[in-house]
């Protein structure tokens, strides 16, 4: 299979966020990471496009995405002070949605910075 090449890819592993990485991928996994450091290479090669996990789990049982979204919404809606936490390894676009959700459910939104 021909490898796809992605130039100027951005590594999100450490705070350097190097954006000069060249990734070679075979559709399912990244096989080469030019210019990435040892940490970046491990990061890129550690995630694949395989379906290794169920879409979702509810109480440890495989569930559909729709059901999991509904269950999540129900828990968060019913909580008095829900917490939205993390936000490190997600995009700004996801962070922006997370703040909007925290506001909607009247919760606290926080990141690794507070540690």
């Amino acid at each position: 299979m021909e490898l796809s090449i992605t130039k100027n890819a951005t590594c999100t592993f450490c705070g350097c966020v190097c954006d000069d990485i060249e990734l070679h991928a075979d559709g399912e996994r990244i096989v080469e990471t030019k210019r990435a450091c040892i940490l970046g290479e491990a990061w890129f090669k550690n995630h694949t496009a395989e379906r290794l996990y169920p879409d979702a789990l509810i109480d440890g049982q495989p569930a559909t995405l729709d059901d999991a979204v509904e269950a999540a919404a129900e828990y968060l809606y019913n909580a008095h002070l829900p917490l939205v936490y993390g936000l490190s390894n997600v995009t700004c676009e996801a962070q922006r949605e997370a703040v909007a959700l925290a506001e909607l459910i009247g919760g606290v939104v926080d990141s690794h910075t507070s540690l």
């Binding site: 966020v17 936000l87 490190s88 390894n89 995009t91 009247g106 919760g107 939104v109 910075t113």
Partner: peptide
Amino acid sequence: MRGHGNVTGGDVVMRWTTGYPFGVNLSRG
């Protein structure tokens, strides 16, 4: 020397959406 991933982006986004960089309580709206 900020840590991994987009933790810096989290600070940035929270600042423009809430005025504060982290640990923001929105329970009073």
